[in-house]
Simulated scan of single mutants.
Amino acid sequence: MEIHQVPSTSGPVHDQVRGVVFDYGGVLTTPVGESIRAWIARDAIDPQSFSRTIKSWLSRDAPRGTPIHRLELGEIDGETFNGLLAERLVHEDGSSVAAEGLLEKVFSGVRPDPEMIALVEQVSGSGVQVALLSNSWGNGGYHWELVDRLFAHVVISGRVGVRKPEPEAYGLILDSMGLAPSEVVFVDDAEPNVEGARRVGMHTVHHLTAVGTRAALGALIPALSTSTPQESR
Score class of each variant (00 low, 15 high):
residue 111 R to I: 00
residue 181 P to W: 08
residue 97 V to R: 02
residue 169 A to D: 05
residue 156 I to R: 08
residue 25 G to P: 02
residue 233 R to N: 04
residue 6 V to C: 09
residue 145 E to S: 14
residue 106 V to N: 05
residue 92 E to W: 02
residue 1 M to A: 13
residue 80 T to S: 10
residue 10 S to Y: 12
residue 122 Q to C: 08
residue 74 G to H: 04
residue 67 P to I: 07
residue 146 L to P: 00
residue 157 S to T: 05
residue 52 R to I: 06
residue 208 L to Y: 13
residue 122 Q to T: 12
residue 57 W to Q: 14
residue 146 L to G: 01
residue 184 V to D: 00
residue 215 A to W: 09
residue 77 D to N: 14
residue 18 R to Y: 05
residue 191 E to K: 13
residue 99 A to V: 09
residue 221 I to L: 06
residue 15 D to H: 12
residue 178 G to P: 02
residue 129 Q to G: 02
residue 191 E to T: 15
residue 34 E to V: 12
residue 61 D to W: 13
residue 1 M to G: 10
residue 220 L to E: 09
residue 1 M to E: 12
residue 41 A to I: 04
residue 72 E to I: 08
residue 159 R to E: 13
residue 155 V to C: 04
residue 153 H to Q: 09
residue 121 E to Y: 05
residue 47 P to S: 13
residue 9 T to P: 03
residue 156 I to K: 05
residue 6 V to F: 10
residue 163 R to K: 13
residue 12 P to E: 12
residue 193 N to F: 06
residue 90 V to I: 15
residue 137 W to E: 00
residue 206 H to K: 14
residue 27 V to H: 07
residue 17 V to T: 09
residue 152 A to Q: 13
residue 50 F to L: 15
residue 167 P to M: 05
residue 112 P to L: 14
residue 229 P to G: 09
residue 202 M to P: 00
residue 22 F to N: 02
residue 26 G to S: 03
residue 216 A to V: 14
residue 231 E to P: 10
residue 233 R to H: 06
residue 196 G to I: 04
residue 102 L to H: 09
residue 218 G to L: 06
residue 155 V to S: 01
residue 6 V to Q: 06
residue 11 G to C: 04
residue 23 D to A: 06
residue 3 I to P: 05
residue 149 R to P: 02
residue 62 A to N: 12
residue 127 G to E: 07
residue 232 S to D: 11
residue 97 V to A: 06
residue 37 R to C: 11
residue 158 G to Q: 03
residue 60 R to P: 00
residue 72 E to C: 11
residue 30 T to M: 09
residue 110 V to K: 03
residue 86 A to C: 06
residue 66 T to R: 07
residue 64 R to K: 14
residue 145 E to N: 15
residue 25 G to N: 08
residue 200 V to R: 10
residue 72 E to K: 11
residue 51 S to W: 13
residue 174 L to T: 02
residue 213 T to Y: 08
residue 68 I to Y: 03
residue 135 N to K: 11
residue 33 G to N: 14
residue 202 M to F: 02
residue 187 V to Q: 00
residue 52 R to Q: 15
residue 52 R to H: 14
residue 153 H to N: 12
